[in-house]
Structure formats: structure tokens, C-alpha cells
Design a protein around this nucleic acid. Sequence first.
DNA 1: TCGCTAACTAGATGTCTGTCAAATTAGAGA
DNA 2: TCTCTAATTTGACAGACATCTAGTTAGCGA
Lengths: 128, 128
Amino acid sequence: MSKQDLPVIDVTANDASACCAPLVCEPLNAAEAEELAPLFKAIGDPVRLRLLSLIACHEGGEACVCDLTAAFDLTAPTISHHLKVLKQAGLIDSERRGTWVYYWINPGVLARLSALLGPRAVAMAGTP
Amino acid sequence: MSKQDLPVIDVTANDASACCAPLVCEPLNAAEAEELAPLFKAIGDPVRLRLLSLIACHEGGEACVCDLTAAFDLTAPTISHHLKVLKQAGLIDSERRGTWVYYWINPGVLARLSALLGPRAVAMAGTP
DNA sequence: TCGCTAACTAGATGTCTGTCAAATTAGAGA
DNA sequence: TCTCTAATTTGACAGACATCTAGTTAGCGA
């Protein structure tokens, strides 16, 4: 991942006319929008956004449901529901290990969304 | 609210965690999530995501409502509603010019969201 | 095997949201 | 002034959603 060959572009210089931002390059057609919107919708909830953040920041890049539940004033089923939404959107993945279930982020998807909004072609870095 | 004593802040630099790889740096607290989630929610609808894209791609960086409405199979009030949602989220802005109303993107907000999701410091503006 | 705990599913409920038809506001021109 | 068009607001309604309680599944240890 050489940062070097990426052009250095000041994000602040990005006004709408600057082109080359995915969103700003060519308008999304209906099908693309239909495919992408659910991803944003998934993180368009405070609880889920925070869940995502908590998972991403957790050591090892993964977090146990019990840790996550403890961070909210919500019941376990509710947290479970939100995790399911994130997972179905493809933003996170999970695995059971003994008694506990661990969740981790799917970084490629996040990178894709970032690139879409981003002022520059950030990188398809994430996608292998 | 006196607008005048507000410091001029580059929105792109004004992100919640003010540092680098937002989501992945330090977990968002509840307040931050509560503030940011509505932005993602706003683009979490296929119609609005496409509206945003259409506006961004339109020549001159702005688009007339009539152009936008024509691109969908929806009634004008519905488009109007979605534009209002985007505007209230701060993602777009508008101005009436004679008979027509023009909308344009607020690029700073988009950049902020991109940076938040961005993997490695999507180019945090300042760092050359 | 029996309990105990972690996590999820199912069902119910009140709220939010996307959409439309109808009514309203704002300019432009005759 | 009156009329036409662009755009928004209002009100209504069906469908989606966040949350809860209660019940269920899965693994661990005695």
C-alpha cells in the first residue's frame, strides 16, 4: 500500500466542479442507487453507526456481542437486530467461538462507500 | 443565532474526532453518532442518492428542479420532499432564480462523511 | 444429564417515512 | 390585472422500522 503513488489532493479544494469523485463523475443510474442506498441506510441509524465504530475500534478488529450490548441502553435483542441489519448489508461479518459471537468489519465495503462520497478516487485500495 | 461570531471552519477538517481515520480511530460517542447518522440516513434512499449524484454531475455543479424531476418516475411533490430532506441534512443548498430553483451540493459535508468511512486516512486534508 | 449464560428469533406495538392528490405560493409575460 | 408554469406545502395513508417482552437455540461446566 504505497501512499506515494496516490496523488496528493487537498480535499478542501474539492468543490463540486472538481470532478473525479465517483458521485460527481457520472450520475448513478437507478439500479446502482438501488444497490448502494441500503448500505447508507444501514449506517443511517445512530445505534448502528456506533456499533460499527465500536467494532472497528475494538482491539483485534473484532468485538464480542456482550461488549457491544454493554455500551448501550438497549436490550440485547435490539442490539442483535441492529447487528443483523449491518450484517445483511454486508458491512460486518461474524463467527461464533464457543459461548461468544464475534463481529468484525468488512473493510472493503466501507472503503467503497468512502470512495463514492470521496472527492477523489480514493482507492479502490480496499477491494482485493 | 449570530452568524458573525462563528469562526470560519473548513468543514472537511471539522469532523467529530478531528483526527485521522475517524471510524477506525476511536469509537464515536452517542452524541456524535446522533449527529452523523442522519446524514447517512439522508443518502440512504435510492431516490435521494441519485438526486445527489445528478446534482453533483450536472454542469455548473447545480441543477434545476425541473431537470431532476424529469429523471424520475415520481411526482414533483415527492422529488420536492426528497430535496427538502437532503437540504435539511445540510447536504445540498438551493436558491431561486426567477422561475426556477437551483440546487447544488455542499461538498464539505460529503467529504466529511467520506473521511469518516475512509480506510486509511483518506487524505485527511491537511497532511501533504 | 441438568442448570446457567450468551445470543438470537418471534410477535406485538407505536412511530417514522415515502408517496400521491389537492391546494398554495412565486415569477414571468400578456 | 389575469393567466400560465415552476415549485412547495398540506393532508392522508400504506408500508417499513426500532424497540420491547417472551420464548428458543447453543455451548459450557458440574
